[in-house]
Amino acid sequence: MVNHPGLVNFLGGFQDETCVYFVMEYVCGGEFFRHLKAKENKGHIKVTDLGFAKVVGSGKRTYTLCGTPDYLAPEIILNKGHGMAVDWWAFGVFLYEMMAGFPPFYDEDVTNTYKKILSGRFGFPAHFSVNARDLIRKLLQADLSKRYGCLAGGANDIKNHPWFKGVDWIKVAKREETPPIRPVVKAADDRSNFDDYSSLGALKHDFELSMNEQAMFVGF
């Protein structure tokens, strides 16, 4: 099992009659919806929520419709088949939300969210810099032949964009950069950076997995 410093690592799993359980690495810095960023105790970001992650071979497509509506690329909604290009679109949505506090195509009605995504029209709050607007527009590009991350330069087009000027990507990978925010962590098992969900009680289901469903996860 590979331990990746930038991901919340999967440690193991098991199942019972109703659920499949994932045992994940504990990251004591808190969760996304608490900090609006995921961090370790030293302030470095780890990526989690990989439940819908899927490996798609080079040049191949998948047709699975899943994910958070606000982050879906047009080709997913249109069921055209999609690959890694949708991740670059989602990255554009992510950058926008981190700076605005809300996603670019937000609507209380999910159908309207899809319509906005397909229209490709969105605006920027006044505080967005010229470089931020330029990068986000190039990521939220419906035409895959123009979307940043999908061009000949690949991810380097994004990393070398003026908005990231001054970022030393080698130091970032080595966790040698000083993060702008570091959560206070009192001990290795400190839970103060997480919301308290203890009042919710144990998860219960009104069904049981069939033998065939159970067999799908044997040895997982």
Rank of each mutant, 00 (worst) to 15 (best):
T111G: 11
P183L: 05
W169E: 01
G29E: 08
K138N: 12
P162I: 12
K204P: 09
N212K: 13
G92I: 04
T48L: 12
E40P: 02
A85Y: 01
G83M: 04
M211S: 14
D134G: 02
G154M: 09
Y114P: 09
N156Y: 08
A188V: 15
D189R: 09
L72I: 12
H35Q: 09
N131W: 06
T113S: 01
K115G: 07
G59V: 12
K115L: 14
I76R: 03
V20F: 15
W88Y: 14
D206Y: 05
E75D: 09
W89M: 06
P125H: 10
V93S: 03
Y96E: 12
D157G: 09
L11C: 12
V27L: 00
R175I: 07
F122R: 01
G59W: 02
G43E: 09
K138M: 15
D143E: 12
V218S: 08
G153L: 05
D189Y: 03
Y21T: 09
A100Y: 10
L50S: 04
F194D: 00
F164N: 00
G123A: 07
A187C: 10
K42V: 11
A142S: 13
R137A: 05
K60F: 13
S145R: 05
P5D: 01
D157A: 02
W88A: 04
I170R: 11
I45T: 15
